[in-house]
């Protein structure tokens, strides 16, 4: 479904702040893949998602979606096939607009926006049904401003907006990281449900190794702008946190043993 071919991204090239964020990264996602992405801070996880969504341009390499080269397509055009949920719950919704207005905007993702009325009665029913599946009681609050909702509720609404019009690829960028543990668990459960129900191809960045193991059929670990571990199938199912930490340390080379090895060289 999605193919990244040798993409590179360097921030502030040629300055003292130069930072290589993504190095020759290649990745192929098959239809229906639910991939969890882990890695330490600065590993390039969010950058990879931003490159896919077009929020930032790639330096080199190409991005292919469904056989079509979208490397140079602006972000708002890519949105036609992408659903996105951000880490910051404030970022994915319009606080001063009503819940139904936010959903109506999302329901027109990838379509031409003309002079027809922005929201229809038929849609309202559809929104109510979709919201009730979240079990947050939001189905009776269509006319509430999104800004009045809690962070978890907003994130749930953002998630719904991302999948209202079925995306070919769902990008989740640590979408539970800013929530309290209980709310995070709930949003994650909703995520799992939505992804399974719609059989969505998904990339989910997370800091939580347990979540990364429990969800998805494939796990990739990033370090220094590269994919260092790529596990799927049976191996993924049998993953444990200690083993993952071992892999992680081995890959990023930050155990004492590795340090010693480095020093001995």
């Amino acid at each position: 479904m999605l193919e990244l071919r040798k993409i590179c991204k360097t921030f502030n090239p040629g300055t003292v702040n130069e930072k290589v964020a993504i190095k020759n990264l290649s990745l192929t996602l098959s239809d229906g893949d639910f991939v969890t992405v882990i890695g330490s801070n600065g590993a390039g996880k969010s950058t990879m998602l931003n490159l896919i969504s077009g929020a930032i341009p790639v330096d080199s390499g190409s991005i292919i979606a469904n056989g079509k080269d979208i490397t140079h397509l602006p972000d708002y055009k890519r949105a036609a096939i992408l659903g996105r949920v951000f880490q910051d719950p404030m970022m994915g919704t319009s606080a001063n607009m009503l819940i139904e207005e936010n959903l109506a905007l999302a329901n027109r993702r990838g379509q031409k926006r003309g002079l027809k009325w922005g929201i229809t009665e038929v849609e309202r029913e559809f929104f109510k049904k979709s919201l009730s599946k979240l079990n947050l009681g939001l189905e009776n609050r269509l006319g509430t401003k999104v800004g009045l909702l809690s962070g978890g509720q907003r994130q749930a609404v953002t998630l719904l907006m991302a999948v209202l019009r079925k995306p070919e690829l769902l990008l989740l960028d640590e979408h539970t990281a800013a929530l309290d543990p209980k709310t995070a668990a709930k949003v994650l459960a909703i995520t799992e449900e939505i992804v399974q129900e719609n059989n969505l191809t998904t990339l989910m960045v997370t800091h939580n190794m347990k979540d990364a193991i429990e969800h998805g059929n494939r796990l990739i670990m990033m370090d220094g702008g590269r994919i260092v571990v790529d596990i799927s199938g049976e191996e993924k199912k049998n993953l444990t946190v200690p083993y993952l930490i071992e892999l992680f340390n081995g890959a990023s080379g930050n155990t004492e043993a590795n340090d010693a090895m480095l020093l001995s060289k």
Binding site: A95, N102, R113
Partner: peptide, 11 residues
């Protein structure tokens, strides 16, 4: 109100 959200919704 929120250009980031707008872009993500294909606006």
């Amino acid at each position: 109100d929120n250009p980031n959200m707008a872009k993500a919704q294909g606006i």
